[in-house]
Design a protein around this nucleic acid. Structure first.
Lengths: 147, 147
DNA sequence: ACGTATTGGTCAAGTTGCTTGACCATCATC
DNA sequence: GATGATGGTCAAGCAACTTGACCAATACGT
């Protein structure tokens, strides 16, 4: 594999990820929710059982201060709320509101729409294989916000 | 394909791209060049024959003001210089210096190193197929800097 | 040829989303 | 129960982008 190919691969990955992210965000807004792409990834972590600010920070790959600011935004816009943590009085459990869950579903729908275009080009099997390959390569490091 | 899979695919793409980008940047710095990831993508556009600020802006997916600021940085650090454009007196042709070309090669080497880890997991054929798939999906939209 | 609109580029100021640093409250360990 | 680690917030700073205003040179329509 030549060196220039490696750079091109990176560029292609970034372009694909950026394209998807943009489409999803547009789709979420078209469904009547305001927000930025980071919301979706925060939702993914909060949806099952909620999370603390520190856990969220680790998931997103940012400082806990940045995560706390993001939670401020989510609370202000009615997507999440801070509750007392059941076992640790220092911590606060951030959970989605009903509106937050609705927005999560909107994001998932938008993501499905965006990927559908890919499926039409590559076929469902190919896309599934693509997922599989990526999962083996980048096994859940934090999502890094910048290139 | 389920909705939640689509979001997970996006997350995986972002994680993979972010991981690669970080590794490349680290590799470039380890080779003695200072810079940020955007440099590499700028170099890729400048390397063949140079480019105008406006062309660079389109390639990176930012405003021409932002591109101009990036060029300022590149010039200040000795990687590029602004020349008179051969046919258009308004425009200025941004070209790499010798140091800029050295840094470009360092970036390509670092990218190859980063991808090598992938090749060991997936095999060269798989990685090549991956490149191919991505190229068919995201045929050179601009590189978007944020998620 | 000439006025008008467009294009390439820069300067200036504002915004956003992150960071580092300081700090308090609570927990864990001994 | 003192001591250090951990969860969280407040505050200030910064990097990289944006929008807006502007000038110089080109392209177009007549």
């Amino acid at each position: 594999m030549q060196n220039s190919e490696a750079l091109a691969l990176t560029a292609a990955l970034l372009a694909a990820a950026g394209d998807l992210t943009q489409r999803i965000n547009d789709g979420v807004q078209a469904r009547g929710f305001e927000g930025r792409p980071a919301y979706g990834f925060a939702f993914a972590r909060l949806a099952p059982d909620g999370a603390t600010v520190t856990e969220l920070a680790a998931h997103l790959g940012v400082t806990k201060q940045a995560a706390s600011q993001l939670v401020d935004e989510l609370v202000r816009k009615g997507y999440a709320e801070r509750r007392a943590h059941p076992v640790d009085a220092r911590a606060r459990l951030v959970v989605l509101t009903e509106r937050g869950r609705k927005c999560t579903r909107a994001a998932e729908e938008a993501a499905a729409d965006a990927v559908r275009a890919w499926v039409e080009v590559l076929g469902e099997g190919e896309v599934r294989v693509l997922c599989d390959r990526l999962a083996r390569i980048a096994p859940y490091g934090p999502l890094r916000p910048t290139w």
